[in-house]
Design a binder for these strands. Structure first.
Lengths: 128, 128
DNA sequence: CGGATTTATATGCATATGCATCTATTAACC
DNA sequence: GGTTAATAGATGCATATGCATATAAATCCG
């Protein structure tokens, strides 16, 4: 808990001081950016990111308001929606990555070697 | 991030379904419970728990409202305060621990052996 | 078929968080 | 000794979160 708290604060601080949006935005944009046609259903994003349904719904509101994604209707199922990343959204993700990658390196990469990172990832994956 | 997110949700869920307060309360009550005379200055709690100053201030409000802690003045420095745990607070902490301990065992203890847990703790401590 | 259930997403309301700033007090400096 | 800076803690305001529930469409089942 402490490690993630201090890592997350450090990374959020780095993003903020580079005038980038919060980290949660990255996860959604990243999933969309690498999805076929840059589009996913909300429930697919939910599965991939672990965001709670009601939080994701409102995060999509914010992304949409900034023009980073668009909602489109999903014809095969009237309940469903598409969330589609825009060009502006792809650019925003790339801009965030510039900062995020350096932040990961500074706060994690510099403190663990590859073998240690692999061990850590394996142990954590058993808890997730 | 994912491991802590899913652990924290699971533990919060366990606490809630046992009608216990959120986990954040535990950390503060625990620090107070084991401090000499059951009292600490807010900034000391802050250092020990990693809570942000403004969040701690309001968490203390909530604990005080429930009668689990009391604020007292600190004579050596007019800016300072004592936060003192009450008997009700000690009992509340003990009650939370009943649930929390089982939850830790179920979600972590059951998935890692002692050596793995020690490795994990060591690696995480390097990131905190 | 038609009512009951389930699934996908959104939202109202209460609470928690973050940021910036405020007040009060003490320490630092020249 | 008086101004300036630093420290301890609290708070107003905007935003985010959690919970419960709403809405709407699809599926199930007798």
């Amino acid at each position: 808990m402490r490690a993630q708290h201090s890592l997350l604060s450090a990374i959020e601080r780095d993003l903020r001081s580079a005038h980038q949006p919060p980290l949660g935005w990255y996860d959604v944009l990243w999933e969309l950016d690498r999805a076929p046609d840059g589009r996913l259903r909300p429930y697919e994003i939910e599965e991939r990111t672990l965001l709670a349904q009601y939080n994701l719904s409102r995060l999509i509101d914010r992304l949409e308001k900034e023009g980073l994604v668009m909602r489109e209707s999903f014809d095969q199922d009237g309940r469903g929606r598409w969330v589609v990343i825009t060009e502006k959204g792809r650019a925003a993700r790339a801009g965030m990555w510039e900062v995020y990658a350096k932040s990961i390196q500074a706060h994690i990469g510099a403190k663990l070697d590859d073998a240690e990172a692999a061990t850590l990832a394996e142990l954590l994956s058993r808890l997730a």
